[in-house]
Design a binder for these strands. Structure first.
Lengths: 215, 215, 215, 215
DNA sequence: AATGAATGAGCTTTCATTCAT
DNA sequence: CATGAATGAAAGCTCATTCAT
């Protein structure tokens, strides 16, 4: 097996993409993208307002015409990340509401993985820099995050109840399956030689096996 | 299912423990423990030399009598973390050298999980702050890290070859199984209501299912 | 003879003057003047950024909006000093190009002395703090300095060749005549009771005698 | 004429020599020599106690078993430098007490130059770092320094009175002749291709010409 | 005589932020 | 909308010096 050399970076991916339609126009949006790249690379504390401004090509004071503080840039990124995740998982759950638990679980895991392959920098910031946010700025994201975890918990319970799944410890299954997706953001990239679909499908199968679902 | 409220912290665990026998005596060791706690909580860039010194109860200048720079404190933590992980995985692999691939995989995953439950702060720093290290200070740890990944890859290949495992995409299986353990450090703690053994056993079973081993 | 008491200071003069037209306007110029005074008095290493800022009446951080480092303040002073010296010597040499070597030597020494009486602090910094400068920042000044020494060497050679001067060891004559002027910056001041012109004329006569020119 | 490239160093010479018989034995003497080298190269403020200790091969705390402070190391160097200068000039003046003023002036200048060629580092520190010394530590040296200047002033006055010399402005002649010697310490070295005697003889002749003595 | 550990003060520089223009 | 200048606070680190051993 060819293990690609492990890189001591927080994210392997390069493009600081944001979901369609959420990037504000003009300078405000470019600040957001620069913040995304730098926060993903160096963490919130490790990135400076001057670095962000420099990447955008503006004076650091100009940033304050668009965001009231460095923390608010992070807050907007974290909000966008959580909303995208929540939207995709909610959509996947709704779309498969009447399917078997197995199909719904697969859909949720696929959605979960794909949001991490599509926006790896955003995912790394969203998952890893929440601690740097003022509690009041973090609160809305925390609510979305809890809803996402409950979506996963609910399908596991449904499958356990109706006999599709055989789960010894549902809580650990949630942490495992959730954790699988989170890690994807760190290493997914073109060097891997796998498409986003391939990873999503494979990880969905892993999840089904974790809960002993027939496949 | 009772999902405990998700906490916006990098580590849930509290005790800034280091493996037996590696903590240097006296002030040097206390600096290491304080650095561990603060780097785990706030990241390398988010923790200041004065905070570390304050936690130890020394003047910030005194720190430099023991370590030549802030980066060297991190470097020692990262080195310890990688050596512990490497030692445990190597031991597990050696102990099960003559067993089936399934038993060896289980042993590796158990060891991997246990090192994350036993030293969660160290694991978070070891996995998450390597990027902040000067390349020359990081190099030895990167070598150990690659060896660990190869241990896992080798047992997967052995099981795939001898028919114990059925793996579509071995590389993705490595990332998945490896990723499972890494995440443990973030949420394992007393509030979870699971012992370290319970988590390790369960995760070992998850891994075996991921590779379709008979159990 | 009334020898004024010798003072253990690097410069006796007080006014931290810079040549006309080179002081930048506003804060940037006041930083330069404060740096001049403090570097002259205490040397580069002995003067702190906070002292400079305090003398200007600004926060020490503000200094960095005008100069990228303490070394760059020194670099600008050293550059100004060398350019003024070079300009005056070049002008003196050009003005007397068609005169006798004796008249040209006198003009050069007068110019050399006058630049030291007019800007003694600048001369002390320019001559005495070059060693503290990064080589790349020092390079342009070193070139000017070498050109100045060659101006002096050339007139000595001309006078030696055409019989106006009688010089045993031209190299030592250059060091002696050059050294005469350099020292002036340390002790010239109002307490001396001599005008700049008196010193310049007298030293020019000294130089002519050193090379045995008819007067 | 081959002007050697001008070097942006405070002293060109290398050997950190002290006069015979004054270097204290053992560590105390090695501290003095290390201080001499570093103070000459970087100035008092630019050299640290740890650098000195490092050069000696001792712990910086050990230095305080030999000298009560960094300033006292400088003070001892400055004292030694002034005593050597005073001793040599006094001896030269005494030896030529009954000679012509011209011969006495030549002897004084020769002695002055030779002390600068023989101990250039010491001379640079002695002349250039007095300002960094506490006034009470500097006082004895200042007295010696004034005596030296008076020796020179006296012979000039004698020569002027008895008609050997023709001096317009004795004070400026003192500054000029004194300044000649001081500068020697900065550039004298093996690269010059002149012996100490050659320089001393030549500079003595320069001095006689400055005062219009018959030669 | 020498040391390692410790310290308070200070260093140069960068931080996020403000404000007048 | 954008800027240059400014700031208080704090960053990592070095300073000369002290002290118990």
């Amino acid at each position: 097996m060819d293990l690609p050399a492990w890189e001591p970076r927080r994210v392997v991916a390069m493009a600081a993409d944001l979901p369609d339609g959420v990037t504000p126009p003009g300078t405000r949006g470019r600040i957001l993208e620069a913040g995304l790249e730098l926060f993903a690379e160096s963490g919130f504390a490790g990135a400076s307002i001057r670095q962000i401004a420099g990447m955008v090509g503006i004076n650091s004071a100009t940033l304050y015409a668009h965001y009231p503080s460095k923390g608010h840039v992070l807050a907007e990124l974290v909000r966008i990340g959580h909303e995208e995740m929540w939207a995709r998982l909610t959509e996947a759950a709704a779309r498969t509401r009447d399917d078997s638990a197995a199909r719904q679980l697969a859909a949720l895991v696929r959605a979960h993985v794909l949001v991490h392959t599509d926006y790896p920098l955003l995912a790394v910031v969203t998952n890893g820099e929440l601690h740097a946010l003022d509690p009041e700025l973090a609160a809305p994201s925390l609510r979305l995050r809890d809803e996402c975890r409950h979506l996963l918990a609910e399908v596991l319970e449904r499958g356990a109840k109706n006999g599709e799944f055989s789960v010894d410890d549902p809580l650990l299954a949630v942490t495992a399956i959730g954790g699988l997706g989170v890690q994807v953001a760190h290493w997914f990239g073109p060097a891997l030689g796998r498409t986003r679909e391939q990873v999503a499908d494979q990880y969905a199968r892993f999840a089904l096996r974790i809960v002993n679902a027939d496949q």
